[in-house]
Amino acid sequence: MDSPHGAAVKAEDFGLKGPRGWAFRGIGLDAAPGSLIAVEGPSGTGRTCLLLALTGRMKPTEGHAEIGRHRLPKKMAAVRRIAALGPVPGINDLDQSLTVAEQLREGALLQRHYGAPIRSLLRPRAERRATAAARIEAALDAAGLDLATLPKGERTTVRDLERLEAVRLSVAIALLGSPRLLALDDLDIKLSDTERTEVWALLRSIAARGVTVLAVCSEAPADAVVLRTGPKEDGGAPEAKQPTGAAGTPKITWGTRAKDGAEADRDAEAEADATGHAAVEKDSGERKDAAADAEKPAKADDGNDSNDDSNDDNDDTKGADDALAEAGRA
């Protein structure tokens, strides 16, 4: 897996409104590439909507943001290509019936169909196998997931994973595409204090590799660039606040809301149906189509072409299996 330079994340008066109120509003942010960004606030205060908007999955209503050199809302598709989703409940949940090996193999196949440049398909089969093996091994290493420590190794089913192990698996799958921005939702749900410490250490290590990290949480660490969502007591305009502490501490920005959390979530869902949620559905549909395509044999012009295509897929899958086996023995 490559270690690409992270994407800078900037936003100015960024907001998303549904038919009955604002999901979030007045968001301001200026984070350098490779930053660890925490979206902090109570559940139901528009945190997930903000994460999806900053990753090009929901269309904002006002203001603008820049992810790398791509400006939102005009360049949503370009942002989706460089921003990967880690665990985001309801969007890219792991398949509980699959084994860890199958889930990783599916992620690798999807990346091959939609993430790899066309010229990579022209490389020799041995080179493609080696590249796939190295990518899986590097992603597992970056996510801190050792298959040998799982109850049944790579054959452990996803439903049998602990919460922290499932987070690591989701992160590994997201890193297969070498994203410049990695986004995670509800990071600290169902985690003990010790596990939260481990997760934040993991995200710091990923940011140190050059990938910008955006994580939704209920309590942000002190060293993160913090965005706080939720209503302000005075209901006034957005206000930038500098926390007390050492010089150079990242700026904390508040976003205002006009409605309570439950109503805003309903508003955001309604708005997504009319605008940006189509992007999420498109991503989901593309993943399903790719998985289906990967299972179907290619239609060939003649018998030789058909055999070649089948051999290519078998070789790539074998490369992924070899990588998983090596990781399990490590």
Rank of each mutant, 00 (worst) to 15 (best):
T156V: 01
T156K: 01
V158N: 03
R159W: 11
R159T: 10
R159H: 05
D160N: 13
D160C: 08
D160R: 11
D160G: 07
L161N: 05
L161G: 05
E162W: 00
E162S: 05
R163T: 14
R163K: 12
R163L: 06
L164R: 09
E165W: 00
A166N: 09
A166T: 02
A166C: 02
A166V: 02
V167M: 09
R168M: 04
R168T: 04
L169S: 08
L169R: 04
L169I: 02
A172N: 10
A172E: 10
I173L: 10
I173C: 15
I173P: 14
A174L: 10
A174E: 08
L175E: 15
L176G: 10
L176Q: 11
L176I: 14
L176C: 14
L176M: 14
G177H: 08
G177M: 13
G177F: 02
S178T: 14
P179Q: 08
P179S: 10
P179W: 02
R180D: 14
R180C: 12
R180P: 08
L182V: 11
A183V: 05
A183Q: 06
L184K: 04
L184T: 07
D185I: 05
D185T: 10
D185G: 06
D185M: 07
D186H: 07
L187N: 08
D188R: 06
D188S: 09
D188I: 02
I189Y: 02
I189Q: 15
K190Y: 13
K190E: 15
L191A: 03
S192W: 05
D193Y: 02
D193K: 05
D193R: 13
D193P: 03
D193S: 11
D193F: 04
T194P: 06
T194R: 04
T194C: 11
R196M: 11
R196I: 13
T197S: 14
T197P: 08
T197R: 14
E198H: 12
V199K: 03
V199Y: 09
V199N: 03
V199L: 12
W200T: 02
W200L: 07
